[in-house]
């Protein structure tokens, strides 16, 4: 084997290993399989289902077996009662200064009790999407959700994300993905 083909083969092997073991996340990959994104809220919509709630108490398929909802479970002053929905869209950035826009996110949440909600999160990035779902206390803004799947570069994504308010910019959420 001549010197050039051997060097080329070695380089090819190095590239092949690098490609097959590459961390499958694009922006701001930190360590292992983690990803940090910075999210700025864009839009919000609240859907008040008060009529459906009242109707459901009076007319439901459970008859006398129906366990009435305790008043304390729906005592939130600003709405957000059991069965209401909230939709949030966010712009995603890869840097804390919000200069590199890398995608969008949307949370679709259904409130249950005590102002907690189950939220379905969809994170659309340039090279694929990730999905997360789980409980969230929307009053605090801090949440930890299981990541349950993805598409494209994130196909088969599994793990968890944690989202907290930025310590420097109070209107920015820092979302950390930890993927297995």
């Amino acid at each position: 084997m001549s010197r050039r083909p051997a060097a080329a083969l070695a380089a090819l092997a190095v590239v092949a290993i690098a490609v097959t073991t590459a961390v499958p996340v694009a922006p701001a990959a930190t360590q292992g399989r983690s990803l940090v994104l910075y999210a700025k809220p864009a839009r919000a919509e609240f859907v008040n289902h008060n009529d459906d709630r009242e109707r459901g108490i009076l007319k439901n398929p459970f008859g006398s077996d129906y366990l009435p909802t305790p008043p304390s479970a729906n005592s939130a002053k600003k709405g957000a009662r059991a069965g209401d929905n909230a939709l949030f869209s966010l712009k995603l950035y890869s840097d804390r200064n919000l200069t590199r826009h890398v995608g969008t996110a949307i949370y679709s949440c259904t409130f249950n009790f005590a102002r907690e909600a189950i939220c379905d999160g969809h994170f659309q990035l340039r090279d694929g999407a990730m999905f997360a779902m789980g409980p969230a206390n929307l009053g605090s803004g801090n949440l930890v959700l299981p990541v349950i799947g993805g598409t494209g570069r994130y196909s088969g994504a599994h793990g968890q994300l944690s989202s907290t308010w930025s310590s420097t910019k109070k209107t920015v959420q820092v979302i950390r993905f930890r993927l297995l």
Partner: peptide
């Protein structure tokens, strides 16, 4: 053990 239940009747929708 069930603690709280809320049924949402969407007949109007």
């Amino acid at each position: 053990v069930p603690a709280t239940v809320q049924f949402m009747n969407h007949a109007d929708d």
